[in-house]
Design a protein around this nucleic acid. Structure first.
Length: 324
DNA sequence: AAACTCCTCAACCGCGACGCT
DNA sequence: CAGCGTCGCGGTTGAGGAGTT
């Protein structure tokens, strides 16, 4: 089947819309309503293809479009729905009135996806990332840091104040890396890297006691056998291991009832959502805090028992129907 | 102030789904 | 049922604004 020519092939205008074009499109739709997108451009006096007009209307000109930053509640809803629906942006957009699929998709790609990756969570599966290649950038950074440390003069002369600042920053960064790396199933290479870094960290701490590692991390370094065995009693509660409670999406106490999720919907008694307590708040609070606080909450033993993804613990009739 | 890099988001493209004949 | 036209979706791109050096 021969496809209709794309916009460019007929000498139709492409690219950003001018206010005049917007006005024409708005006027036409207000006067005639939505009909055939194919026929609209000619009828409205626009030198655009119908597809372009449709997109412009849906993503920008529609009167019910909500502009501005996504609220924390919207962010939670997106994370929640994405864990169930995947990249079904239009389906997700149906639960966020005033938001377009394009807007949600952009927001996901520019903010949420990165946030999850930073946290060591696979943005597609919403599970902790356990693959080696996912850890590669961190391992490279670890290796570079190690090299950096080995090259430090530590001679106590004029460079000292600067050195301390750099070391403090390094320490902070290494704490993050450590916690990230510890959440990944260790390979012999990783174990070796971590072992040598542990030694390096100990040396730094001895030389620069004011930059002690946090008790949490020290406990972690001490408690985690780098060969992959985690003493059972030291296993931290994980985001995914917490008892599943019957809570609504607004686990954040600051969110008032009128802002509650659209997923919860009109019939909240029927559509309550099961989630690990506070998990979404943790996720959406990430921007202001150290990502590794969350990363450290993942299992450290590369356990063979797969951790449940949110989708496995979320029960929402409407969404399940949508999936079906 | 200029050059450069990074980030955001509007818009495009290709494809599958759907509906009509 | 097949063929065709249109619509809607998801992935991707690139212009331009913001931030940094």
């Amino acid at each position: 089947m021969r496809r209709p020519p794309s916009c460019g092939e007929k000498g139709l205008k492409k690219g950003p819309w001018t206010p005049e074009e917007d006005h024409k499109l708005m006027n036409y739709i207000q006067n005639h309503g939505l009909g055939s997108w194919r026929a609209l451009p000619e009828l409205a006096g626009l030198n655009r293809c119908g597809k372009s007009c449709r997109l412009r209307w849906i993503n920008y000109l529609r009167p019910d479009i909500k502009r501005g930053k996504f609220s924390q509640q919207e962010e939670q809803t997106i994370l929640q729905l994405h864990s169930i629906l995947g990249n079904k942006w239009s389906a997700i957009a149906k639960h966020l009135p005033g938001r377009t699929d394009n807007e949600i998709k952009n927001f996901w790609n520019t903010h949420l996806r990165k946030k999850l990756i930073q946290m060591g969570i696979d943005p597609m599966t919403h599970r902790p990332r356990t693959d080696f290649f996912a850890a590669l950038p961190q391992l490279i950074a670890l290796a570079n840091l190690r090299q950096l440390i080995e090259q430090q003069p530590w001679d106590g002369h004029t460079t000292r104040p600067q050195t301390e600042v750099v070391q403090a920053a390094n320490l902070q960064y290494m704490q993050s890396l450590f916690q990230s790396a510890a959440s990944i199933a260790p390979s012999p290479t990783i174990i070796s890297s971590l072992n040598s870094l542990t030694t390096d960290l100990e040396q730094i701490c001895l030389l620069s006691p004011q930059h002690m590692l946090s008790p949490t991390l020290l406990d972690r370094i001490g408690g985690v056998d780098l060969a992959g065995q985690v003493p059972h009693n030291q296993m931290t509660n994980t985001l995914f291991d917490q008892p599943v409670g019957n809570i609504n999406l607004s686990s954040d106490n600051n969110v008032n009832s009128s802002e509650r999720s659209h997923v919860e919907g009109e019939n909240s008694s029927q559509k309550s959502v099961l989630l690990p307590e506070n998990s979404l708040s943790l996720l959406t609070d990430m921007s202001a805090s150290n990502p590794c606080n969350i990363i450290s909450a993942s299992k450290c033993d590369g356990s063979s028992t797969p951790l449940p993804s949110w989708s496995e613990i979320i029960l929402d009739e409407e969404i399940m129907r949508e999936i079906a």
